[in-house]
Design a protein around this nucleic acid. Structure first.
Length: 342
DNA sequence: TAGGCGTGGCA
DNA sequence: TTGCCAAGCCT
């Protein structure tokens, strides 16, 4: 049932016929003509795409390439500028690692972005998926590319029963049995594209799938049973106050600690976030606070409810005042909007 | 190794 | 509304 050669041939044929293209992608025909992808641009696209929809990441990718045409430009840039440009993309450790990685490439690799999997794995923010993908796309290394899309495709094709995340390693090894030296970059992208388009999480369009005849889950009409996952626990709710201090057109902000949630980013003052509503005992100043309602924001592992309070204060109050809040993480953007609303 | 770590779209 | 999910990595 699972003839590897037939499966690869069917997938690559489908990929070539699709002509599906992404902004950073070198098309198969250009690639055959000798066009070499820029590993720096590919790396940027891959890091930004981690746990992020392509539609959301693409404008950021263009902006970064425009502002920092080379990895050395990025390494030389002020870190706060990089973090600010990342605002809204989420998972801010990626931005810190991005800047750190650029520095390592500049200082330890002569400013030339590596393209072999082993070296890539040593760089900050580059894990198994990203290393495998850059090496396959940029250097035709026959790596085993496994992302969420590939997990879904392979688990369905083989009716893989072990629940994730426990079964992740075995599933990854299973996927590796399909890897060959022939067109590894195109093969990996084809497999991801299949998961992103045909073999979607909810309503896969199996009728159009090049692997229809190979797929055990499809033969059992149980496509959406896979990948089997363990149930998640419900996310807790945390409460706190957020304070919007205004002076003319400026707002008082503070820098958050470099590690942990929203690490290194700029935000407005808040109380600690606890499991019950709080009071003004941790307010940054004693003022007659004007209530501005509550904002809710859902993080990966908890929901945050912040009661927003605002006050007009004197500019002599010590701190950082900004009139441009575009570099703030989304949760603080919501707070400032609530705080400035009528 | 299991949990921390954002945000937006979609059913 | 609610929950799931997206081209994962780090500790």
């Amino acid at each position: 049932m699972h003839n590897v050669s037939d499966m690869r041939a069917a997938l690559l044929r489908w990929y070539d016929e699709q002509g599906r293209t992404l902004p950073w992608r070198v098309r198969p025909e250009d690639r055959a003509a000798g066009v070499v992808p820029d590993p720096y641009a590919i790396w940027l696209s891959e890091v930004m795409s981690q746990q992020t929809t392509l539609a959301h990441a693409t404008p950021y990718w263009r902006a970064f390439l425009e502002a920092f045409p080379s990895v050395v430009d990025l390494a030389d840039a002020n870190r706060d500028v990089v973090l600010s440009m990342w605002a809204g993309l989420g998972y801010y450790a990626r931005a810190r690692n991005l800047h750190k990685c650029a520095g390592v490439v500049r200082d330890d690799h002569l400013g030339i972005f590596p393209t072999d999997e082993k070296t890539l794995l040593t760089l900050p923010g580059i894990g198994p998926y990203t290393a495998a993908t850059i090496a396959a796309i940029c250097a035709d290394e026959a790596t085993n590319i496994v992302d969420g899309n590939v997990e879904r495709v392979i688990s369905r094709t083989y009716a893989f029963e072990t629940p994730l995340p426990k079964g992740r390693k075995a599933l990854r090894d299973l996927s590796g049995t399909l890897v060959r030296a022939d067109r590894p970059g195109d093969y990996g992208q084809a497999l991801m594209d299949l998961g992103a388009t045909i073999c979607s999480p909810k309503n896969p369009t199996c009728l159009l799938c090049p692997w229809r005849e190979f797929c055990v889950a499809h033969s059992q009409s149980e496509e959406t049973k896979y990948p089997v996952k363990v149930k998640k626990k419900p996310t807790p709710i945390r409460y706190g106050h957020a304070y919007v201090l205004r002076c003319e057109d400026k707002v008082l902000v503070e820098r958050r600690p470099d590690s942990g949630l929203l690490g290194g980013m700029i935000g407005v003052p808040t109380t600690d976030w606890g499991d019950a509503p709080t009071d003004h005992s941790q307010a940054p100043l004693h003022r007659n606070w004007e209530s501005k309602g509550q904002i809710r924001h859902v993080f990966t592992h908890f929901e945050l409810r912040l009661d927003v309070f605002a006050a007009e204060i004197e500019a002599s109050v010590e701190g950082v005042w900004v009139d441009d809040t575009s570099g703030l993480p989304t949760v603080f953007t919501k707070v400032v909007e609530a705080g400035l609303a009528d």
